[in-house]
Simulated scan of single mutants.
Amino acid sequence: MNLNDLKKAWENLSKTVNLSPIRTEKQYKKMVQLADMLSDVIASSKKHSLLDLFELVSELIRAYEHEHFPVKDAKPQDILAFLMQEHHLKQSDLPEVGNQSVISQILAGARQLNVRQINALAKRFKVSAGVFFERA
Rank of each mutant, 00 (worst) to 15 (best):
K75L: 15
S104I: 11
V97Y: 07
V97N: 08
K75A: 13
S49G: 05
E55Q: 12
Q27W: 02
K46H: 02
K30R: 13
F69Q: 10
Q105M: 15
P76R: 04
L6H: 09
L53A: 03
I42G: 08
L89C: 07
F125P: 06
Y64D: 03
Y64E: 08
A43D: 13
Q112V: 09
K7M: 06
V41Q: 15
Q91R: 11
K46V: 02
S39I: 03
S45L: 00
L3R: 11
K29N: 12
I106S: 13
K26P: 00
Q112L: 15
Y64S: 07
S14C: 00
N114W: 00
D73I: 00
A136D: 11
L3T: 11
E96R: 01
D52C: 01
E67Q: 13
L121R: 03
S20G: 10
A129M: 09
D5T: 06
F133M: 12
N2S: 15
K47V: 11
N119M: 05
E86P: 01
F54K: 02
F133H: 09
M84S: 07
L80N: 05
S58E: 15
E86A: 06
K8P: 01
E86Q: 12
V97R: 05
L51H: 04
L121E: 07
D52S: 14
N114S: 06
A63T: 14
L53D: 02
T16R: 14
P95C: 06
L60V: 05
N114M: 07
I61L: 13
R23C: 00
I42F: 08
Q91N: 10
H66C: 07
A122I: 02
R116M: 06
V57Y: 05
L80A: 02
S128C: 03
Q77A: 13
R23W: 00
S45V: 00
S20N: 13
L94R: 08
T24N: 13
S45P: 00
N4C: 03
I22W: 05
K90H: 14
K123C: 01
L56R: 09
P21V: 12
S39E: 11
E65Y: 04
K90Q: 14
A129R: 12
T16Y: 12
I61K: 08
P76C: 11
A120L: 03
E86F: 02
Q100V: 09
V115L: 11
K72E: 13
S92M: 10
R62S: 15
L94E: 11
A74W: 13
K72T: 13
M1W: 06
F54S: 03
K46A: 11
L80Y: 04
K26F: 01
R23L: 10
H87A: 14
N2M: 10
A136M: 08
Q117C: 02
L107A: 07
L56K: 12
L13V: 04
F133T: 09
D93W: 05
W10F: 07
H66M: 12
M84I: 03
L83M: 15
Q91T: 01
Q77E: 15
